[in-house]
Lab assay of single mutants.
Amino acid sequence: MQIFVKTLTGKTITSEVEPSDTIENVKAKIQDKEGIPPDQQRLIFAGKQLEDGRTLSDYNIQKESTLHLVLR
């Protein structure tokens, strides 16, 4: 499924993921596309910071959901 990751600069990254993918996994995909190390990434969805060990389905993230990427 496709999800969108919006950066603070307003850029939107499209990523191909599975509901069973972990947040860590998603951060790795963002690193592949943007070159941002996962340890600098914080992903936010519905006002919550997403934890690395959890999966997209844990957070009820569905296709075409938009996550927000904040850098630390």
Rank of each mutant, 00 (worst) to 15 (best):
Q40S: 09
Q31R: 13
Q40L: 11
T66I: 13
I36R: 03
I44C: 12
L8S: 14
I23G: 00
Q40P: 02
H68K: 07
G10M: 03
I44K: 05
N25R: 14
S20D: 11
G35W: 03
S57R: 12
L56Y: 02
I13W: 11
A28V: 11
Q31D: 05
Q31K: 09
V70K: 07
L50P: 00
R72T: 13
T7H: 07
K48T: 12
H68F: 14
S65C: 04
R72C: 11
K27C: 02
K29A: 07
N60V: 04
T22D: 02
E16P: 05
Q49L: 15
D39A: 11
D21C: 05
E34Y: 14
V26E: 01
I36G: 03
T7Q: 07
Q41R: 02
N60F: 07
G10F: 03
G53V: 07
S20T: 13
G35C: 05
D39Y: 13
K48V: 14
G35S: 05
S15Y: 15
I23E: 01
E18I: 12
K63R: 12
Q2D: 05
D32R: 12
T14P: 07
L43G: 00
R54V: 06
I36D: 03
D52Q: 04
D32G: 10
Q62E: 10
T9M: 12
E64Q: 09
R72H: 12
L56V: 09
K48F: 10
S57G: 10
S57H: 10
K48Q: 13
L8C: 15
L8V: 13
D52V: 04
D58Q: 07
N25S: 15
T14L: 12
G35R: 06
V17W: 05
Y59E: 02
T12I: 15
L71C: 08
R42M: 15
P37N: 07
I13Y: 10
R42Y: 13
V70C: 08
G10N: 05
D52L: 05
V17F: 12
R54N: 10
D58P: 00
K29L: 11
T7R: 08
D52C: 06
P38N: 08
P19W: 07
Q62K: 12
A46D: 13
I3T: 00
K6H: 13
Y59P: 01
E24D: 08
T9R: 11
D32T: 11
E16H: 11
E51V: 08
P19I: 08
I3D: 02
E18K: 14
N60T: 04
L67P: 01
V17N: 04
K48Y: 09
I13K: 02
I36F: 11
K27F: 06
R54Y: 13
E64F: 14
L67R: 00
T14V: 14
K33R: 10
S20N: 12
N25K: 14
T12N: 05
D21F: 08
K63G: 13
V26S: 00
L50T: 02
S57T: 09
E34C: 15
T66G: 02
F4C: 05
F45T: 01
V26T: 02
Q41D: 02
N60D: 10
L43D: 01
T22K: 08
E18P: 03
L71T: 09
T9K: 11
L43S: 00
A46M: 14
Q62H: 10
A46V: 06
P38W: 13
A46P: 01
Q49E: 15
L56S: 00
I44D: 04
L69F: 03
I36E: 02
E64S: 10
F4A: 04
G53I: 07
T22F: 08
V26A: 02
T12F: 09
L56M: 05
D58L: 02
S20G: 11
V70H: 09
L8K: 10
S65W: 03
L50D: 00
T55F: 06
L43V: 03
P19A: 09
S57M: 12
K29N: 06
L71R: 08
G47S: 04
T66K: 05
G10L: 03
F45K: 03
S20C: 09
T14M: 12
D21G: 03
I3C: 02
Q2H: 11
E51N: 07
A46T: 05
L8H: 14
M1C: 04
R72Q: 12
R72F: 12
T14I: 14
E18R: 14
S65D: 14
V5G: 01
L56D: 00
I13G: 01
I61S: 01
D58K: 02
L56R: 00
L50Y: 00
I44H: 09
Y59G: 00
G35V: 03
R54C: 11
L69H: 01
Q2I: 15
K6I: 14
E24L: 14
I23P: 02
G10V: 02
A46I: 06
K33L: 14
R54W: 10
V5N: 01
T7Y: 14
K29T: 07
S65P: 02
D52H: 06
T14G: 05
T14A: 09
T12L: 13
E34F: 15
K29P: 00
K29G: 06
S57C: 04
D39R: 11
K48W: 06
G47W: 04
G53L: 08
P19S: 09
E34L: 15
V17M: 05
E64K: 08
T9H: 12
D58N: 05
K27I: 07
I44W: 15
K6W: 05
P38C: 10
D39G: 11
Q40E: 11
G10Y: 03
T22A: 05
L67Q: 01
G10K: 04
T9Y: 14
E64L: 10
I61Y: 00
Q40A: 10
Y59M: 03
Q40V: 10
A46K: 14
S65Y: 08
K33W: 08
E51C: 10
Q41L: 11
P38M: 15
T14D: 04
H68S: 07
G10C: 07
Y59S: 02
L50K: 00
T66C: 05
R54D: 04
L43N: 00
T14W: 08
D58H: 10
P19C: 06
P19H: 05
K33G: 06
P37V: 05
G53S: 11
K63D: 14
I3W: 00
V26C: 01
T66L: 10
L69V: 06
